[in-house]
Design a protein around this nucleic acid. Structure first.
Lengths: 153, 153
DNA sequence: CTTATTTTAACATAAATATATAGAAATTAT
DNA sequence: ATAATTTCTATATATTTATGTTAAAATAAG
């Protein structure tokens, strides 16, 4: 499949969840709370958060009262950075980033196509920040609220 | 990873190989020859060719003198059709095609983003035919020939 | 200062899926 | 019949996805 791995998808949701809690002085959020809200196994979240920390997208605070926070303002974190941290790259096929991966690069017509498709995605994800996701999320939520309100009337 | 599976990649190369042999009355090509030329395990090609046949992108001719041929002219076969046959879908994440996949669709901001990214890819692959790949391939080859020629002079 | 609690961090393991190989039966041309 | 080739089924290996267990660090309470 052309598929974004669960790491990339769950990681994006983890980051968006932290972004939602970013206001109010950016208090630390524990993974248990993310796990409950996003319905993702806490054990799996623990693994996902490691590369995010290594790539300085989140900060960790250990011990009681600790948790995780975004390392920067949501508007300063691009989706492409998150995916890059979690997927190792943002490209569709390995041969696009690692020229040693396949010796046929020079003659392979499909290489050109995968390359351009990867660039399309990279551009797209490079222009979306967590702030954008928050706004999309808010729009969706207010729509839902409006709907359920009109139902009751 | 955001990754095209080997099925998709190998399948595209298999189809491109058949397309290269399409001229001359579209003679049948045996998988052994594809395997040798593309350096892909023949056993694996056997598995990959089945969905291509089911989706009527190739025709099979059994027995001695048999092999596989394209079902239509290369200009009439889109890359998106090949990927769809092999990947089941052309989308980045399952929730985009299968609304039962995730109950959070209504509130999930990331859904919107994966959806648009999937559409980007779908559009891109929907506008590339095997004929286009042949032309890219020819351009690449003549360039290589020109280079090795100038090296000798 | 000691102990208990909260939380991250690290390591190990299990389950599911994707990738790849192997053997042999079925079909067809000669 | 015989050789060439697809087709089917089984199996092996690697990678991804997910869970479980324990250790380490920081804080809070007494």
């Amino acid at each position: 499949m052309i598929r974004l791995s669960t790491k990339g998808r769950y990681g994006a949701r983890l980051m968006l969840n932290l972004a939602h809690h970013y206001k109010n002085g950016n208090e630390a959020v524990i993974l248990k709370s993310v796990s409950d809200e996003e319905e993702i196994s806490i054990r799996y979240l623990e693994q996902i958060v490691i590369p995010l920390k290594i790539n300085r997208l989140v900060k960790s605070i250990r011990g009681a009262g600790g948790g995780y926070t975004l390392a920067r303002h949501p508007s300063k974190i691009k989706l492409s950075e998150i995916l890059h941290a979690l997927e190792g790259s943002c490209c569709l096929v390995e041969c696009v980033e690692d020229s040693d991966f396949c010796s046929r690069m020079g003659i392979c017509a499909t290489y050109e196509v995968w390359k351009k498709a990867s660039d399309l995605l990279k551009d797209y994800f490079g222009n979306i920040t967590l702030q954008d996701l928050i706004e999309i999320s808010n729009r969706k939520n207010t729509k839902i609220k409006a709907k359920s309100k009109s139902k009751n009337n």
